[in-house]
Simulated scan of single mutants.
Amino acid sequence: MQAISRSSVVVGYTPYIDSVADLTGGKELIVSGMKQERERCMAALRRAAEGATVALVSSGDPGVYGMAGLALELAQAHDFQCTIEIIPGVSAANAAAARLGAPLMLDYACISLSDLLIPWERIRQRIELLAQADMALALYNPRSTKRVRQLEEAVEILLRHRPAATPVGIVTAASAADETTTLTTLGNLLEQTITMRSLVIIGNSDTRELNGMLVTARGYRL
């Protein structure tokens, strides 16, 4: 909030800028739609190089599947002379975990199932190795209207290494007004309503459902 209030220019994806409309009155707004991340970063860097104080807004955490990395890469590639400060946010994995209980209490990994920028075979390999490592998994971008098979293949891989009864939590639109939360199992995961706004947390062998909450035991003596 402080960073946005101190900025004269706010740049971001249209729904994200809409969500902070109460903070942007009187400011220059640069907004655009999906798949225009590079253009947004370039616009933000140009205005910053001109001397403006610019807020480049991401959802969740800008350093976790957000805009921070791209902004740093473009600043170096195009020799923009400006100072960049990364302000951490609450990642979707941690926001969803808090809604579900404490499913990420031990080692865990975040995997995006979107193969728009990463080859699917590389993503498959990571899922396979993490499944064998018995780590809890937070799946970002699990499914869209056009992209269904990725989640199906991920579940197929996981079921080779984990019981169908493995606890799973789904949080859609975490922290938003239309947030929904679902507890299920790995064997029943594909029957649930899952969208691009969903975050799926798949437990490991130490994850249990306790009074409607998921808990991954860390090993404390009770």
Score class of each variant (00 low, 15 high):
residue 153 E to C: 05
residue 193 T to H: 15
residue 210 L to V: 04
residue 188 N to P: 00
residue 142 P to W: 03
residue 131 A to V: 03
residue 77 A to D: 12
residue 100 L to G: 07
residue 18 D to S: 12
residue 147 R to I: 08
residue 173 A to C: 09
residue 11 V to H: 01
residue 54 V to S: 04
residue 96 A to R: 06
residue 208 R to A: 09
residue 198 S to H: 08
residue 70 L to Y: 03
residue 113 L to T: 02
residue 31 V to Q: 13
residue 3 A to P: 12
residue 135 M to H: 11
residue 127 I to C: 07
residue 162 R to G: 05
residue 27 K to G: 03
residue 155 V to P: 01
residue 78 H to W: 12
residue 159 L to V: 00
residue 168 V to A: 14
residue 96 A to N: 06
residue 208 R to V: 06
residue 32 S to C: 07
residue 137 L to D: 02
residue 145 T to Y: 05
residue 16 Y to S: 13
residue 9 V to T: 14
residue 108 Y to P: 06
residue 158 L to Y: 06
residue 139 L to R: 02
residue 58 S to R: 12
residue 72 L to V: 08
residue 115 D to I: 08
residue 212 G to D: 01
residue 59 S to D: 12
residue 204 N to V: 06
residue 145 T to L: 13
residue 10 V to C: 06
residue 26 G to D: 15
residue 121 E to T: 08
residue 214 L to W: 01
residue 206 D to E: 05
residue 150 Q to I: 02
residue 137 L to Q: 04
residue 90 V to E: 10
residue 23 L to K: 15
residue 45 L to F: 12
residue 189 L to Q: 03
residue 128 E to P: 04
residue 209 E to N: 00
residue 62 P to D: 06
residue 193 T to A: 11
residue 186 L to Y: 10
residue 135 M to F: 14
residue 141 N to R: 05
residue 171 V to N: 01
residue 45 L to H: 10
residue 89 G to H: 13
residue 206 D to T: 00
residue 124 R to G: 02
residue 98 A to T: 15
residue 206 D to N: 08
residue 47 R to P: 05
residue 98 A to M: 11
residue 3 A to Y: 14
residue 24 T to R: 01
residue 69 G to N: 06
residue 40 R to V: 02
residue 52 A to N: 13
residue 137 L to F: 03
residue 46 R to C: 00
residue 112 S to E: 02
residue 86 I to M: 15
residue 145 T to K: 15
residue 118 I to N: 07
residue 46 R to I: 09
residue 4 I to R: 13
residue 57 V to T: 04
residue 116 L to V: 08
residue 129 L to R: 12
residue 33 G to C: 08
residue 119 P to R: 06
residue 209 E to T: 00
residue 95 A to Y: 12
residue 49 A to E: 14
residue 199 L to K: 01
residue 103 P to E: 03
residue 112 S to P: 03
residue 90 V to Y: 12
residue 181 T to K: 15
residue 190 L to T: 05
residue 48 A to Q: 09
residue 166 T to F: 05
residue 119 P to W: 15
residue 85 E to Y: 13
residue 31 V to Y: 00
residue 167 P to K: 10
residue 152 E to W: 01
residue 155 V to F: 04
residue 15 P to S: 05
residue 193 T to W: 00
residue 218 R to G: 15
residue 119 P to Q: 10
residue 185 T to Y: 10
residue 127 I to H: 07
residue 219 G to I: 07
residue 131 A to I: 03
residue 28 E to W: 00
residue 139 L to N: 04
residue 4 I to K: 12
residue 40 R to P: 07
residue 59 S to Y: 13
residue 198 S to T: 07
residue 97 A to E: 02
residue 128 E to Q: 09
residue 190 L to D: 02
residue 211 N to T: 00
residue 12 G to F: 05
residue 221 R to I: 14
residue 27 K to C: 06
residue 65 Y to K: 13
residue 1 M to Y: 10
residue 122 R to M: 14
residue 72 L to F: 03
residue 114 S to R: 09
residue 101 G to Q: 04
residue 72 L to Y: 01
residue 28 E to C: 04
residue 102 A to G: 14
residue 217 A to L: 09
residue 137 L to A: 08
residue 186 L to E: 01
residue 55 A to G: 11
residue 72 L to P: 01
residue 103 P to Y: 09
residue 153 E to D: 11
residue 84 I to Q: 11
residue 135 M to S: 14
residue 178 D to V: 10
residue 127 I to W: 04
residue 65 Y to Q: 11
residue 63 G to I: 15
residue 181 T to C: 14
residue 172 T to W: 06
residue 22 D to V: 04
residue 170 I to E: 02
residue 18 D to H: 12
residue 7 S to K: 06
residue 127 I to G: 03
residue 167 P to H: 08
residue 137 L to W: 06
